[in-house]
């Protein structure tokens, strides 16, 4: 674990940023100085001031508070979606590699077809037609990334099955389910963990992209992507309005990607032993 951090300042920094984000996600509402929905027509589009550390938006709402509140839905959607994608994707991938031939072929062809749709396209369709909200978003984004997990689980399982210890399990008479839980799952965890990290980042970007287009988390609920979208209209009046949520988004996603990359570096060479 410590090997992850040794001599890599970027990783330490990223972990720190993520810690902040998590703390904010949990305690955000308590830390916010103002009510994010509080409209104040007298203080519209103001730059940073002692009263409003990051300024106010077009309705006079405190940007800092909206940012803090905005973390929760984004992070919840991202993590929830990743869990859905991971669970179902892994199941499908393992069945595809280890189950009956026909089931495997069917599943992998299906995954290929789904991968033909860019994620945002599928997500657009779904949120466009279903009532918007956190739960819908979570399910939609989760389903969209199932094929990606399926792919990773499938190829990792294929490699593991080739190993003799799987044949050894079979030779002593283990039932398939036992083989999956004792031999396959523990040995495909590494690529799955890496994929999960990257999926969280992708889910955050996807959710914010949808919100940016006005189809994700809709106002007055705050969301970083949505704030960026709205802020574009007020560039002349309050240029920093767009900077703050952009910065938050970029830094969070960057931090997750850095951690995911170093996880991948850490876990990979060991596999080669």
């Amino acid at each position: 674990m410590m090997a992850l951090f040794r001599g890599r300042p970027m990783v330490v920094l990223s972990a720190f940023v993520l810690l902040l984000v998590i703390v904010a996600a949990i305690f955000g509402p308590l830390l916010a100085p103002y009510d994010p929905f509080l409209i104040n027509h007298l203080a519209v589009n103001q730059a940073s001031s002692p009263g409003h550390l990051l300024g106010t938006d077009e309705f006079g709402r405190d940007i800092l508070s909206r940012l803090l509140y905005g973390i929760r839905p984004t992070v919840t959607v991202a993590i929830g979606a990743t869990v859905i994608a991971a669970v179902f994707g892994t199941i499908l991938g393992i069945i595809g590699a280890y189950g009956y031939r026909w089931a495997g072929t069917l599943i992998m062809r299906g995954i290929d077809v789904l991968l033909a749709f860019p994620p945002i396209l599928l997500a657009l369709l779904a949120v466009g037609f279903w009532p918007s909200g956190m739960f819908t978003l979570m399910v939609v984004i989760g389903v969209v990334y199932i094929p990606h997990f399926g792919r990773v689980a499938h190829s990792a399982t294929l490699q593991v099955i080739r190993q003799e210890y799987v044949q050894a399990e079979q030779s002593i008479g283990s039932r398939p389910l036992r083989v999956v839980f004792t031999a396959i799952l523990p040995n495909i965890l590494s690529p799955l963990v890496v994929q999960a990290t990257l999926t969280v980042a992708a889910a955050i970007l996807l959710e914010s992209g949808l919100s940016f287009l006005g189809l994700g988390i809709v106002p007055p609920e705050p969301s970083w992507g949505q704030m960026i979208g709205t802020a574009r209209g007020y560039l002349n009046l309050n240029p920093m309005y767009v900077v703050w949520p952009s910065l938050c988004l970029a830094l969070t996603v960057l931090a997750i990607n850095v951690i995911g990359d170093s996880l991948r570096d850490l876990l990979d060479p060991r596999l080669r032993q």
């Binding site: 992209g209 992507g225 560039l235 988004l249 970029a250 997750i256 990359d261």
Partner: peptide, 14 residues
């Protein structure tokens, strides 16, 4: 490169 993939596309276009 890592920064490049983390920064959402629409921020740059601003």
């Amino acid at each position: 490169a890592t920064v490049g993939i983390s920064v959402p596309v629409y921020i740059l276009g601003v």
